[in-house]
Write a protein that binds this DNA or RNA. Structure first.
Lengths: 134, 134
DNA sequence: CCGCATCCGATGGGATACTG
DNA sequence: CAGTATCCCATCGGATGCGG
């Protein structure tokens, strides 16, 4: 899964597909990207507004994640030359195109998280009884 | 974003939704889960078959990821009492229900990875020229 | 207000070697 | 074959303090 930048071998298309998925997951798979995209769907927000809406995020991570999203063309960063400084973050069209993916994840999560939690509990209880047996 | 196991306050439903998304992303957001699910769509595979199909994965990570997927009820692990040992991994119905999400991610990745890469390149070149200017 | 710089502990994950 | 155990390093991310 080397993720070369260019492949002419058509047999490796499957690997390339996986590779693209991997890159996307590297972007949205982290803790905050999806949350930020979700928050920005309603419209642009400034730094502190985002921070307040996402309880638990540190300024460092917020900055870091926003820079990543900006670098990948998913959000724009607009600095207003006023005092006090004001910086707005907004979804780009590309970022907005991610909404379908976010919705798919959210929808699956909402409808199946119960099953996952149940399976997890069952698995853990079996594991603990097995351990007590030893 | 405390992810309490139970919420009666309807105003926190949004947080719960985010929370469910987070938990799902914690599961499929890692490097290998999506790859494994993709490989298992065609049918059950044994450990070494999976390892061979996913170039670069270490036994440790493969085991770890498979255990996580099994714990969450997404795959089954079947041990055949034969020599040499044979263990088959297979998607559960719950795991198969993830295919829609995987497809959404893959589809978005395939159609937009070019844009992301272009944005990234543009961002990086601007950053480097800005640095050279100083 | 919006960050960036630095330090530092926790964690993740690769390489390697070994077992039932 | 199908893992487990150990070491070790890179990265992540929190805390703090400073700058524009």
């Amino acid at each position: 899964m080397k993720c070369s930048t260019h492949l002419e071998d058509s047999e490796q298309v499957d690997s390339l597909r996986d590779c693209a998925s991997r890159q996307v997951l590297d972007r949205i798979g982290d803790a905050w990207s999806v949350l930020i995209v979700t928050q920005l769907r309603a419209g642009p927000l400034r730094f502190t507004e985002l921070a307040r809406k996402m309880d638990g995020v540190t300024p460092k991570m917020l900055t870091q994640t926003l820079r990543g999203l900006e670098r990948d063309g998913l959000v724009t960063r607009t600095v207003h030359a006023v005092v006090p400084p004001r910086v707005d973050y907004e979804l780009t069209p590309l970022g907005r195109s991610l909404e379908g993916v976010v919705d798919a994840i959210t929808a699956w999560a909402d409808s199946h998280i119960g099953d996952v939690l149940a399976a997890r509990g069952s698995y853990d209880s079996k594991a603990s009884t097995a351990k007590n047996r030893s």
